[in-house]
Write a protein that binds this DNA or RNA. Structure first.
Length: 354
DNA sequence: GATGCGTGGTA
DNA sequence: TTACCAAGCAT
């Protein structure tokens, strides 16, 4: 078995040398840049995350630059990437590094994992790639590669999976070059050992793959059924007031924490809102209401049916926290994707604001 | 330890 | 079109 593992590693390393993609953060030993790339790439495709990595490195070349930013500014740069807690935690961790570690990135796994937003995967990735420490990463790619290589039937999202797969990853890890090994395993999963229709003919470790041997590469890894999607109904009001309009910041405990949006009414119904309903909900006097756009926005476990309205009211909204802004001022506010799309479209129309 | 958190690509 | 899911983490 140990012989098999040596063979796997040799084939994997050779394949990685010849087939690795060129990525902006590859080859860097700067823990700050490795950390940045790892956070940005969590649950994110390389093509989607890469422009954000480049933006962040340019705007914040050093961890001290990032630590002195404010949250709204970081979220604005993060806008459109999703999972915004990553952006908020990125800032907190930068401040931890500056104030608790004097600006020097910690190099021990047990210290790195204490940083906000860094869990077992990211800590292992950073210390193995930046400092060549022997910690095996376990991400979606590695789970899939290991499940097939060793024909592991335990669902990868089952509670006991982490322990079992970590054991396999640790056993296979190349202790001399853990960083390259980790990157090679992930690269194999990302480019060859794909979730659907894996490219087995081009796999460097095909001869060791138990799943391939038994023809089960298309049903592994197993996965427990995910929970259902719920639908929510959002009604956004474009309320204009002397060339400006109202926005407000979303709070903790729901999607899009820290981002900004138009005044929102959420209902349990698909229907359009009436003036009377809004007057009751907001305790105000609506003088004009017109639905102008309807859209569906899909999150992983929520489907949002969104209606945008133009509205006028006799008195301003009582609710504190409302901000008046205009087309130009809006640029500093991070927006959820559907709000960004709507406002871009709406505000570029002549006469939209008057 | 189960659940919540985005967006966009792919088949 | 729908379903899956991509370099996970916090609570």
């Amino acid at each position: 078995m140990s012989q098999d593992n040596n063979g796997i590693k040799a084939k994997l390393f050779r394949w990685y040398q010849e087939n690795q993609r060129v990525l902006p953060w590859r080859g860097s030993k700067d823990p700050y840049k490795i950390w940045l790339s790892e956070i940005i790439m969590q649950q994110t495709r390389v093509a989607q995350g890469t422009p954000y990595y480049l933006k962040f490195v340019e705007k914040y070349p050093l961890v001290t630059d990032l630590a002195s930013a404010d949250e709204q500014e970081v979220l604005k740069l993060w806008q459109g990437l999703g999972y915004y807690s990553r952006g908020r935690n990125l800032l907190k961790a930068a401040q931890q590094i500056v104030f608790e570690y004097k600006g020097v990135f910690p190099c021990e796994y047990n210290e790195v994992i204490k940083l906000k937003g860094i869990g077992p995967y990211t800590a292992a990735a950073i210390v193995s790639i930046a400092y060549n420490k022997p910690h095996a990463v376990l991400d979606g790619n590695v789970y899939r590669v290991l499940a097939r290589l060793y024909a592991i039937e335990i669902p990868i999202n089952a509670p006991q999976a982490r322990l079992v797969f970590q054991k396999q990853a640790d056993a296979l890890l190349d202790k001399k070059n853990p960083g390259v090994f980790n990157e090679a395993m992930m690269e194999l999963g990302a480019t060859v050992c794909l979730p659907k229709n894996p490219d087995c003919p081009n796999c460097p470790v095909l001869s060791y793959c138990k799943a391939y041997k038994s023809g089960s590469q298309n049903i592994l890894p197993r996965k427990l059924a995910s929970r259902s999607v719920k639908t929510r109904y959002f009604h956004y009001l474009m309320i204009k007031k002397s060339g400006k309009f109202y926005i407000r910041q979303r709070l903790a405990g729901d999607i899009w924490q820290g981002l900004f949006e138009l005044p929102l009414i959420e209902t349990n119904e698909v229907d359009f809102l009436t003036i009377n309903q809004i007057n009751e909900i907001l305790d105000t006097k609506i003088t004009f209401l017109k639905p102008i756009q309807k859209t569906m926005h899909k999150l992983t476990h929520q489907h949002l049916e969104i209606v945008f309205y133009e509205a006028d009211m006799a008195t301003p909204i009582r609710d504190n926290g409302q901000i008046l802004t205009d087309n130009k001022g809006l640029k500093q506010y991070p927006l959820p994707r559907p709000l960004e799309l709507f406002l871009n479209d709406y505000l570029c129309k002549p006469d939209s604001i008057s």
